[in-house]
Design a protein around this nucleic acid. Structure first.
Length: 481
RNA sequence: GCCGAGGUGGCGGAGUGGCCACGCGACAGCCUGCAGAGCUGUUUUAUAUGGGUUCAAAUCCCAUCCUCGGCUCCA
């Protein structure tokens, strides 16, 4: 039974999707005017793991993530770069996919763009005007917040007078009340625009999520996610726009991830303290970045530091080493069992018990609002146990080892970790293996004759090729560095 | 000003009343020609501060200090 912390109620609630066996979720995607940074990755990876766990539990997940491809920043950046908003969007959407494919993020079911849903947005706004939840002023349309009685229920705050000063002066004059927010912006000279009943213009930021969420997932949806910074005003406004028309809840579970910080300050474009995904993945393997990101529960802040990334690297290596050890034992055991069938022993049952504990603890942790640190801890505990048994070289059946591999694979699939380690060897690797085995034989001959110079030369030169030799009690094994 | 989150060992990070996180680092040992990996053990009363409740508190209550976030674009 999954429990989710719902921002709306500020409580963990038992998760029950509206449609049995199916989860409909929407996560706010980026405005595609610039490269994604690690702060975006925090959010995207958090919801990727949530989605993967829901799938692990057998749900059919319909997952929609939008691209905001028209807004003030898009227009401004396009003007600066003497290009169009379309070209800008195309460029950064492509980059988005490159970045997050690399980070092992599963693609959403759909990636709707704001500019492809202008007509639906206009219709939605029209209906709001008809019901007097919105009003037109000088070609712009504003949402009449005072008419929507539940305004503020998500963020538990209402816009005060304070920020009226910070708002666009033209808008303030047009608005009936400073709280009101824009649904449709009248065109300014030189800006991209679409025809509407109120003249040429473009949609406000908030309306796209309301409209696209409804179009692709219906109402209400199960989960709507995004960064904590979107709670107000973005999500508050989405609720107002959607529920004013439908008269029913727009979203059943609101989920918000905590920030990625640098020296305890939020990583953001405006502070300039950010690293792009490209920069970070050039320095660290994408799975190291993922492990770093899921080492805290998704609602907690994570403070970025190189030391933390280095630690994640070490921790991932430990997992890799354990899987290598397991796979080697499995290969060897299969060869053995082909000669002499083996019966399960007490060591087998010890492993089965540890495996069952792992599964229970992993699922309990993830069921509890996707507590990845505890889930990772359960994996660690299991690996220590498994390594301990395997290092004693007690005989374990191939069936047991195979089962462990399957469970580890399923868990790794949720985290999006050690995927490469699980892949069967390619035929190329078969050839490599043959060659390396030959060198290992030669080297061990040298070692037997105490010719360590030759032995070390073989090991060192293989290392330069990215092949690491390790001498075990039972013989020498190799792996890619 | 208003709203919200949080302060845990050398470090990261869990934990909503009683026992144990987990990892990184450090130290010692096993194994090894050396190395690596792995294993075993150690890292003495870690829970911002001061009170309180309780047989028992990191966990509940009160106060204080500090940090961060939202209220303007932001994952």
């Amino acid at each position: 039974m999954i429990k989710i912390y719902n921002t709306l109620t500020r409580k963990k609630e038992t998760f029950k999707p509206l449609h049995a066996g199916e989860v409909r979720m929407y996560v706010c995607g980026p405005t595609v005017y610039d490269s994604s940074h690690l702060g975006h990755a925090r959010s995207i990876v958090a919801f990727d793991v949530i989605r993967r766990y829901l799938e692990y539990k057998g749900y059919d997940v319909r997952f929609i993530q939008n691209f905001t491809d028209i807004d003030d920043k898009m227009i401004q950046r396009a003007q600066e770069q003497k290009t169009t908003t379309e070209k800008l969007a195309t460029k950064y959407i492509q980059e988005y996919f490159e970045d997050f494919d690399k980070l092992g993020v599963k693609r959403a079911t759909g990636f709707p763009k704001a500019t492809e849903h202008i007509q639906e947005m206009i219709e939605h706004i029209q209906k709001l005007v008809e019901k007097s939840f919105a009003y037109e002023a000088n070609g712009s349309v504003y949402f009449r917040v005072s008419k929507f009685k539940n305004y503020g229920k998500l963020s538990r705050q209402e816009k005060g007078e304070k920020e009226a000063e910070d708002q666009d002066a033209g808008e303030v004059e047009e608005k009936e009340h400073p709280q009101d927010f824009v649904l449709w912006k009248a065109m300014k000279p030189g800006e991209p625009s679409w025809d509407s009943p109120w003249g040429k213009g473009r949609p406000g930021w908030h309306i796209e999520c309301s409209v696209m969420s409804k179009q692709y997932l219906g109402e209400p949806i199960d989960i709507h996610g995004g960064g904590l910074d979107l709670v107000f005003p973005h999500h508050e406004n989405e609720i107002a726009q959607s529920e004013a028309l439908s008269g029913q809840p727009f979203v059943r579970y609101w989920m918000h991830n905590g920030f990625l910080t640098v020296n305890k300050e939020k990583m953001s474009k405006s502070l300039g303290n950010f690293f792009t995904i490209q920069e970070i993945t050039a320095k660290y393997h994408p799975e190291v970045v993922r492990l770093f990101l899921i080492s805290s529960q998704y609602r907690s802040p994570i403070d970025f530091s190189d030391a933390q990334l280095e630690e994640a690297k070490t921790r991932l290596a430990r997992i890799h080493n354990s899987i290598d050890l397991l796979q080697r034992h499995l290969r060897e055991t299969r060869v053995e069992e082909a000669k002499n069938p083996v019966k399960p022993s007490t060591v087998d049952s010890e492993l089965w018990e540890a495996l069952s504990t792992l599964q229970t603890e992993f699922e309990n942790a993830m069921d509890d609002d996707f507590n990845t640190p505890i889930a990772l801890a359960s994996l660690n505990t299991f690996l220590t146990k498994m390594n301990s048994i395997l290092s004693r070289n007690d005989s374990v059946t191939a069936g047991t080892l195979q089962k462990i591999l399957e469970i580890l694979d399923a868990i790794g699939e949720v985290f999006g970790l050690y995927r490469q380690r699980m892949k069967p060897e390619s035929s190329d690797e078969g050839v490599t293996d043959g060659l390396v085995q030959l060198l290992i034989q030669l080297r061990n001959q040298a070692r037997k004759q105490k010719d360590f110079e030759t032995a070390d030369r073989i090991r060192d030169q293989l290392k330069d090729l990215g092949i690491v030799l390790e001498d075990e009690k039972t013989g020498t094994v190799w792996k890619w560095a």
